[in-house]
Amino acid sequence: MRLILATTLLALTGLTSAAPVTVQDDRGATVTLPGVPKRIVSLLPSLTETVCELGDCAKLVGVDRFSNFPASAAALPKLGGLDDTSIEALVALKPDVVLLGVSARVIDRLEALGLKVVALEPRSMGDVQRVLGKVAQVLGKPDDARRIWNRIDGAISFHAQQLPPAARALRVYYEVDAAPYAAGRASFIGEILERLGAKNIVPAELGPFPKLNPEFVVRADPQLIMVGQRSASGLPQRPGWGGIRAVKQQKICVWVPNESDVLVRPGPRMGEAAALMARCLRQAAAGPVPLPTTPFNAPPGGMR
């Protein structure tokens, strides 16, 4: 009788693990997998980190060139980026599902080859929470998504509560790229800044990551600038920027590459991003912000 019961339980367990998984991605496409995937390709760093945070890093068989965290993901085969993914190498990995951004150019080609594709595009904090839930749904771990989101949200609140009054209400310009592209109030970066009490000079109506006329920043005259080390070179020499209050008072927080990775990826490390921004706000409230002592060395393939 015990043997029969054990066999029945095993059979039921097998049926459960093989139950179809259905998810609607950010294209509005409904994707049905025959079961929880065992082989996953991720073509977006934030999605790679999300899979790992959910405990399924071992299921990743390939990633994009920018996925460098955690270390186990950094060691996986690199398949290119949004615009130059190696389809042949990807297909050879025989993934059960490919996770990528909505803007990836390879979606139609991969689907034509019969691969299951889930396209997700986190831009705001609400998007991050939703995408975390979608990935957890694909992996069969919806409860873990709620736990992880509560930890992220709690960490942001903690760092906001620790800031002294002098570090609040500073007018901030956050540059994500030297074009210049900015993190607006509608972006996850802008929303974290708001949670920390900062005043983003880029209004929400311009979108999450708008390309700005440099004169816009000059006129806005921010008290603090946050920028990656790659884009910081020559910033004070831009036409008119020498007169910006943040430049004159040396209140520019320059992120080294590993910090930039944390800050620009809408995923599980947003609590760490809040800690970095809070550190910057405290430094700016106290006086000139020290520049990094580490020289800039671009990671292989650039940064994302």
Results as ranks from 00 to 15, higher is better:
A6W: 10
T16R: 14
V254K: 03
S124C: 06
R185F: 00
C57R: 13
V217C: 02
G28T: 09
D261A: 13
D261V: 03
S86K: 14
L54W: 07
Q24E: 14
L3P: 00
A136K: 08
K251A: 02
V176G: 04
G271S: 08
F69T: 13
A273N: 00
R230C: 01
K251I: 00
D96G: 09
A89T: 11
G28W: 14
P45T: 08
A75S: 15
A278E: 07
D56T: 07
L93C: 12
A167C: 06
G197I: 03
A220V: 01
R185L: 14
V172N: 02
A169L: 01
T7Q: 06
R230Y: 12
D84A: 12
A183D: 02
I156L: 09
P165W: 10
G242K: 08
T85I: 10
A298V: 13
P214S: 11
V63P: 03
L93P: 09
T30P: 03
L139A: 04
K211M: 14
R109S: 14
A19K: 10
A6R: 11
S260W: 15
S17G: 00
A29C: 02
A273G: 13
P295H: 01
K251T: 01
S86W: 05
G81V: 11
N200T: 07
A167S: 12
L5C: 07
N150E: 15
D221K: 08
A11H: 08
Q283R: 11
A246G: 09
L100Y: 02
S42N: 10
A274W: 07
R230K: 15
A246N: 09
L60G: 07
V102G: 06
S124F: 01
S187Y: 02
A204M: 09
S67E: 11
L113S: 12
F158E: 14
G28N: 11
P236Q: 11
N297Y: 08
V63N: 07
V102H: 06
G14A: 14
C57G: 12
K248E: 12
M270D: 01
L291Q: 15
S86P: 08
T16G: 04
E175T: 05
V106G: 07
V289A: 04
V131G: 02
A92M: 07
E111H: 03
K94H: 15
V138N: 09
L79A: 05
S67W: 11
S231W: 14
G267D: 08
P236T: 07
A178W: 09
A29H: 14
G35T: 04
A274M: 07
S103P: 00
C52H: 11
D153H: 04
P214I: 13
A11N: 04
P165M: 05
L120S: 06
D143P: 00
A160C: 10
A136M: 06
Q250V: 06
D83N: 15
S103K: 14
E49T: 11
A182T: 10
V262R: 06
D25L: 08
G62C: 11
V247Y: 06
V262A: 04
A19P: 05
R109P: 04
R269S: 00
C280D: 00
A167F: 01
